[in-house]
Structure formats: C-alpha cells, structure tokens
C-alpha cells in the first residue's frame, strides 16, 4: 500500500549537513502493524513523517497505492491526511484553546461533516477511549495519558485506513502506555494499518513487522 524507494533525507548543507535517512527501501501492506524501531536520533521520526506525507524526501520516491506521491498536489495531500490517515504525535499536539470534544471534532470540521454527526461521533470516540467524563475539559486539565487518548480519538475521527504514531507512549507512564498500545492493537484487529515508531524493544510483541533503523539505514526487517 505504501512503498518507499531509495528515500534519502538530508538536512542542511556543508558543515551542518546531516544525513537523516540513507537509501530507504520498504513496503507496507494493508492490515500490517509495523514498528519502526531504533535508538534516538536514528531517523525514525523523519521516516514516519515522510511516509505519512507530512514531509518530503530529499531524494527518492514514496508511492501510495502505486502512485508517486511527489506528483500529488498540496490539496491531494491534505485529503490523504484528512481522510486516509490519522497521525498521533509523541507531544500529543492538541489545540490548547479547544476542549477535548472540539479537538476530536476538528478533523470532521475540516472534512465538512455536519454538526450533529460531528458531535455524536466525537462523543462516541471519546467514550471509546474512556473519556466520556472529560468532554469539556481543556488539554491542560487532562493528564498526559488522557491527552494522548484524546489524540487517538482525534486520529480516528474520519475513519482512517492507516494510523501513524510517533512514540505514542514516549511521554506516558507505563500503565497509560499499555492502555494506548492495547488500543492500537484493537484498531489493528479491526483492519486499520498501524505504522508506529518506538525505541522500546519490549513493544515489538505488538507488531507484525519490525523495521530496525540505525544511523538512517535499515539494518533489518523482521516479519512475524
């Protein structure tokens, strides 16, 4: 479904030049639970952002369903981000001035869903992540684990086919971390493709494919 071909990402130039990704080749099939794992600074986030069409490679190509994403217009990419994928950030990235309910409604507003449907679905999703009593709380009134659950509900708002998650448990205590991982596992069992980044080896048990990254290069791909 998503294929990277000879993908390079180079930041800066001259003295400050950093090669974040070196000739990455990989393929992700529908329904997989992919984990990109490696030590801090090895290029995991850079790779995930490029696969999610949030960033572009310096060289190489990313294909979605066989089509070159470099040829997609900005609006086509926006549609991919809005309808096909959902992104979960390590730092949650909720809008601080909106309540939990409004944050979850946001992707549906951008997708021009009607107000009644939006409200209903946002409530249902927040209920699903166990936050039915926090609908009108603002992000700063929620714990890290609760904020990440709002972010998961938001990522699910427009029924995505793929969920991208960048160290979704990275800022959480171990108990909230397990809750988040169990949620991702459940979503994968419902058929959603999960592409997740982590540096924690013990999370590998959730994955169906592990891509090991070191210094911007893939050193091993393990299929389970």
């Amino acid at each position: 479904m998503i294929r990277a071909e000879n993908v390079w990402k180079i930041y800066g130039r001259g003295e400050a030049k950093t090669i974040a990704l070196k000739n990455i080749n990989l393929e992700i099939e529908e329904g997989e639970f992919v984990m990109i794992r490696g030590p801090s600074g090895c290029g995991k986030s850079t790779l995930l952002n490029i696969l999610a069409l949030l960033d572009v490679p310096t060289k190489g190509e990313v294909y979605y369903k066989g089509r070159k994403t470099s040829l997609m217009s900005e609006n086509k990419k926006a549609i991919f981000r809005r309808k096909i994928s959902g992104f979960i950030f390590q730092q949650f990235h909720l809008i601080k001035t909106l309540t939990a309910l409004e944050n979850v409604e946001l992707p549906m507003i951008l997708d021009e869903k009607d107000k009644y449907y939006r409200r209903k679905r946002a409530k249902k999703l927040l209920e699903m992540v166990g936050l039915e009593n926090r609908l009108n709380h603002y992000p700063h009134q929620l714990s890290g684990g609760q904020q990440q659950r709002v972010a998961i509900a938001r990522a699910l708002a427009n029924n995505p086919k793929i969920i991208f998650a960048d160290e979704p448990t990275g800022n959480l205590d171990s108990k909230s971390g397990i809750t988040v991982m169990e949620m991702l596992k459940e979503l994968n069992e419902k058929g959603i493709t999960i592409i997740m980044v982590t540096h924690e080896q013990e999370l590998e048990r959730y994955a169906s494919k592990i891509i090991k990254l070191r210094d911007g290069e893939i050193i091993e791909i393990v299929k389970k």
């Binding site: 549609i79 809005r82 946001l106």
Partner: peptide, 13 residues
C-alpha cells in the same frame, strides 16, 4: 504551531 497541527490534520491552505 496551531497551523502545523491543522495542516497535519488535513486542513487545506
């Protein structure tokens, strides 16, 4: 940052 979040969620320009 809010603009970045909106774009990541699929907002058009």
């Amino acid at each position: 940052k809010d603009i970045g979040i909106l774009k990541a969620l699929g907002a058009e320009t």
